[in-house]
Each structure stands twice: as structure tokens, then as C-alpha cells.
Design a binder for these strands. Structure first.
Lengths: 335, 335
DNA sequence: ACAGGGAATACAAACGTTTGTATTACGCGT
DNA sequence: ACGCGTAATACAAACGTTTGTATTCCCTGT
């Protein structure tokens, strides 16, 4: 009668040492390829290790080396492909340094963000990457005394890697203005310090074209698709000829909700998105949006982290600016 | 001149012990609320702990307790909201057990899947959840001797939680048949043991309606959106009146690619998806798809894991079947 | 034959917790 | 005053690695 409970005891370095009739320290050195152990012994030991199914115990290693070989990445929204690109950049860049990354989702919640960070702290990660952080400056200020922490797109932080958000936003709004729009709605996302530059870009574009800023045209999106109904109603009420949505998902939802209300996009209202997720090109109409260099941001953030860990005080990575992608969801305003 | 390098040394239990003038063991017990330490001392110590900013060292704890309080979740595709639902179910169910979950992405790659599992093994997770596993039975057989491992939707595995995939697939194809379709295409995804039941459901539905199975109608999707162009060409060539796509993202891409080729959905060809992601309802046309009880699957998988850990041999969780969601992307065939 | 010098390996301490056992201190009954 | 019981705390070992230092062994040159 076999128990369904797996056995607890795993093979340790000591077991290998016993089997090879050497000291545990020799086993470690052999396994890490140190030339302090004879080539023959090294081979014998690694053969034994794989044969016995040895799996190193990270807990023990972390405890003694004081390094976990782990990198923590705090992601606001896992489902957003936007962050998947970031993660890929991070992953590929850190793979070369034999680092493994840990991803934690916050769903845009500040409490979850802090919990994620505490979790990483307990796990003794070697560094953390926090894109679009929600929490206060003060919180992060004390934190970065304790652990290398790189912000992504949070320009006021001590260490950060950012691309020029305002630039991307401005490019979209300029594009809309160029098409002839004057009443341009702006949909903000969940409150976060990261959204400020976005709004600045919007306002700068309007100012640049001599258009007065009308607070009624600033709408809100809470991050959930259910919210698009209210958003569509708001658009009906305020009647802009174009809307710059918080992100692509928001834009798609909004377009659908508008269509349900008999408003065609872009014929009646132009809608632009943000992020350029893969599906944006597949939508009907294909979304005009802003493409962000997320992969590069992830990559550079990891490089920055290494610089900080190496004791370099400053590192100013070159990040390409976001680019405007014009597709079918924007056109000249109806007259 | 301040160094930008954070200090390494963190406050440990010993520091607190020194500050409180007690033994380290008393500190641990105080912190875990043991009544072996006087209430007054307990308070004094926890006050000191928060004041000194104590963060427990998981590595040390894991080492001695032999439990990491970690749960590993291996996800084939992070960007698929389908798995986000799963993760949420897992997360909420395990939160009650003071367990934290670790999510690792494989991008549907078998090598990445094994690497993810090895990573979890090194981290000494208390259990693993593997939805739609790619790797061989043999691999998992040996693995489940070493660690509690629950499969999700892999019915041949030792421990698994699954919902009836064939049922969902069959429901869609039955729906198409009912609409009058006879030439129904089927798009398979990346090779995986998990896709077998899906195909069975497709074939069962055809057989049930007395329609011959035509292998030409079975198309392939490799998981990337770039692939939809080839897919659309294949559809043009084979000329089915309806297509059951691998998942919603695939369906959306296919619909767009068909539209580019002058084929209207559903007027010329009906397209059904799979997964019912949030955007499916926002697409134009809104997608007919299959909704899976992913949240429940996640929940039940965690419960199952606890049963296994408690030594129970068998647990047969009740999972609601997938449900057909009829929207606008399917209609009667053109005549 | 013997010192000297590497090469190869063994020894031992340490990392920060947890936990079983031992010790101390104190109040109580007699 | 003395032992006893118990509440509170201290002691010490252990978890699996890593790493600086010590030891052994063998080879070489004289």
C-alpha cells in the first residue's frame, strides 16, 4: 500500500560526499567547478550528483552566501501584455548573470505592492525592479537603503529607468490635433505617480496648439473592463471628437461600448490607445496607439541594477522614446 | 559623500534578543505568539521588532523547518487572462493557509517548463501546481515522489484537477452543427498532452452528427499572433464554413486576417474561440467562445494539494463544466 | 635521504532560525 | 524552613551550504 505522501528527505551534499568518500567541502567545490579539486574527482562527483538526483538547497546557499540569486519584479497587471514584454527584457538580460526572476502581481493595488516588496525582502532577493510604482516616495526612500531597487518610469525616484512618457502622450495628441480635432478627451487610469507625465504631455500638446484645457474632458478609468460603460456614457455627455484612452484594453472596451450606443469609431469619434499590445493590430478598427520600448526598459533596468550593485553611483541608460503607431481608429473629425 | 550601495546587514533575531536582553529562542517564540513567553515580554519584543524594522529571513526559516511556505505555479502563458483567473483562484485559496505563491512562465516551452520545476525544487516549495503540462508522463511520475504536485487539466496524471475539456469543445462544435455547418475547421495549438481531449470533443461532435472527419480541416496555430496570416491562408484554401480556433486570441487574429482577405465574419465564415477572455466580449464581432471555470480550478487544485499533504490518497473535487458562450462571431452558414 | 613546495583534500566555523530540553526563579503548602 | 510544581526563560543542536585555513600527500631537486 503506497502512501500518496511524497517522502521529505532529499539528497544533500553530505550524501554525495559519503558516496564519493570525500569531504562535503570538496563536493561543493567540485560542483561549482573549482580547480582546487582534481579533474578526475570533479567528474566523479558530478556524475554521482546527477545520478543521485541532487538538487541544491537554495535556502542553505542563500543563508551562507547572503545572496539569493533572485531578482524581484513587481508587476501592476500580469494580464497586460505590455508588462509581459518588460518581463521578457528583464529575464533575458538577467539570464546572462545566472539570476532568476520572481514576478509578483499587484493588480494595481498599493497594499499588494507593499506586500510584494515585503515578500521579496523576506526572500532576500538581490534586487528589485518596480515599474510604475504606486506607493509613496517616503516608503521607497527608506527601502532603497536596504536593497538595490530600480524604478521603471518613476522619474522622481533615486534610481530609475524611464522613457519619456510625456513625449509619447504628446505625439498622440499632436496627431489628433493635426487631424483637425479640437475637443480631445483624455482618460486617466488608476491614480499613480506614474501617470503625471502622461497628463503633462496631453496638456502640453493642447497648449502648443493654443487649445484651452477643459477639465470636463478628463475622464476616469479604474482598470476594469466593466468601467467602460460608464466611460462611454461620459463620452456621450461630454461629446469630444477624439479620445485618448488610458491603454489599449481601455480603448477596445470603449470602442465596443460606443458602438453599442450607435457611435462609430473613427467616423463619429476617434479613439487612440496606449501600449500597443499585440491584439491592438487585430482589432476592428485597428488601434492607433503608442508603442513603448518595454523590452528595452526591462533590459536596461537590469543593467542599471548591476551597476548599483557594483557600487557605481550613477548610470544613465539610453532608452528609445515611445513611438506613435497610426492605424485605423483615428481619422479626421466629422464636420 | 553617500555611497549608492545599500548596506547589506539587516537586523536579525539576535539583534532583537540583545536589545531586549533575552535569548534568541524567546524572540522567535514571542514573534510567533507562543504562550510560553510572558505576555508582557511578548509585547516588548514585538514592539522592538517593528521598531527595529525586523524582516524574517526566509532562507534560515526554510532551512530549519523544512518548509518554505511557498507554492509554485507553472503557467504556460502569462499574457493569457485565462491563466490570470487561475492564478487568482490559487492565490485566494492559499492565502488562508499563509502560503505564498510563486508564478513562473513557460511560454508553452517544454524546456522552460522543466526549468521552472527545477527552480521550484531548489526553492523547496511546499507544493506545485502545473496546468496543462507539456512534459512527459515519466518525468512527472518520478517527480511526484519527491514533491506534492497537482496537475490541472491533465487527466492521466497521478494527482489532477480537471474540468471536462472534451465537453466544452463538443458544445461549441455542436452549436456550429446546429447552425447548419458541415465543414468545420479545427485549429490545434502547440503540441501538448492537454490538447488531446479538445480534439476528441471535436471529433465526437462530428461523429455524433454523422459528419466525416476530414484531416484537411485540422489546422495549426503555434501560439504567436504572427501565425494567423498563414492560418487565414489555410482557411481560404480549405474553405470551411466555420472554424473553431485554438483560443480567443487566435480567433481574434484569424478574424482580422480573414477580414484583410475580404472574408467577413460571421457572414462568410463563422469563427468560435476558446477561453472567454475579457476582451472577447469587446471584439467586433463579439466572440462566441467557451468559458472555463479557471478560478474554480485554481481553488480546487490548492485544496487538493492540502489533502495530499495531509496524507489523504484521493480527493475528487467537483469542477463545474465549461460553458458555451454564444455571441456574434458565429451564425448560419452562407448558402 | 631529506627539505621544500605545491596539489589535493579535510576540517571547522558560520549564516539566521527553530525547537526539544535544561535551567532558573518564585510562590505555595506543609 | 523545605521541597515541590510550574511559569518563564536560557541553552544548544540542527538544517545544508560555503569558504578560509589547516592538513596530508606526493613529487622534485639537491
Amino acid at each position: 500500500m503506497e502512501s500518496s505522501r511524497p517522502k521529505q528527505q532529499r539528497v544533500t551534499i553530505k550524501d554525495i560526499a559519503a558516496a564519493a568518500d570525500v569531504d562535503p567541502s570538496t563536493v561543493t567545490r567540485a560542483l561549482q567547478g573549482s580547480d582546487r579539486v582534481k579533474a578526475a574527482t570533479r567528474q566523479r562527483i558530478s556524475a554521482l550528483a546527477t545520478q543521485m538526483g541532487y538538487v541544491p538547497n537554495m535556502a542553505a546557499r542563500t543563508l551562507v552566501t547572503q545572496r539569493s540569486q533572485l531578482l524581484g519584479l513587481v508587476v501592476p497587471d500580469m494580464t497586460n501584455p505590455f508588462f509581459a514584454d518588460l518581463a521578457r527584457g528583464v529575464e533575458e538580460e538577467s539570464a546572462s548573470q545566472r539570476l532568476r526572476i520572481l514576478i509578483r502581481n499587484t493588480d494595481g493595488d498599493e497594499v499588494a505592492e507593499r506586500e510584494a516588496i515585503r515578500f521579496f525582502l523576506e526572500l532576500k532577493v538581490d534586487g528589485m525592479l518596480v515599474p510604475m510604482a504606486r506607493s509613496s516616495d517616503a516608503f521607497y526612500k527608506t527601502l532603497s537603503d536596504e536593497i538595490p531597487l530600480i524604478h521603471i518610469n518613476r522619474v522622481d525616484a533615486r534610481h530609475h529607468v524611464s522613457c519619456d512618457m510625456a513625449y509619447g502622450t504628446r505625439a498622440v495628441v499632436d496627431h489628433l490635433i493635426e487631424l483637425g480635432h479640437r475637443r480631445i478627451g483624455f482618460v486617466t487610469g488608476p491614480a499613480s505617480p506614474a501617470q503625471r507625465p502622461k497628463r503633462h504631455g496631453y496638456e502640453a500638446a493642447l497648449r502648443g496648439a493654443g487649445i484651452a484645457i477643459d477639465d470636463d474632458l478628463v475622464l476616469h478609468f479604474d482598470g476594469s473592463l466593466a468601467c467602460v460603460e460608464a466611460l462611454a456614457d461620459a463620452v456621450l455627455r461630454v461629446a469630444p471628437t477624439a479620445v485618448f484612452a488610458w491603454n489599449d484594453v481601455c480603448a477596445m472596451g470603449l470602442i465596443r461600448a460606443l458602438r453599442d450606443r450607435g457611435i462609430a469609431v473613427p467616423a463619429d469619434v476617434s479613439v487612440a490607445g496606449h501600449d500597443d499590445i499585440a491584439l491592438a493590430a487585430c482589432y476592428d478598427p485597428p488601434l492607433t496607439t503608442v508603442h513603448w520600448p518595454m523590452y528595452e526598459l526591462g533590459q536596461q533596468a537590469v543593467r542599471y541594477l548591476f551597476r548599483v550593485n557594483a557600487g557605481e553611483a550613477n548610470y544613465d541608460p539610453a532608452i528609445p522614446p515611445p513611438t506613435l503607431v497610426v492605424r485605423g481608429s483615428t481619422s479626421e473629425p466629422p464636420r
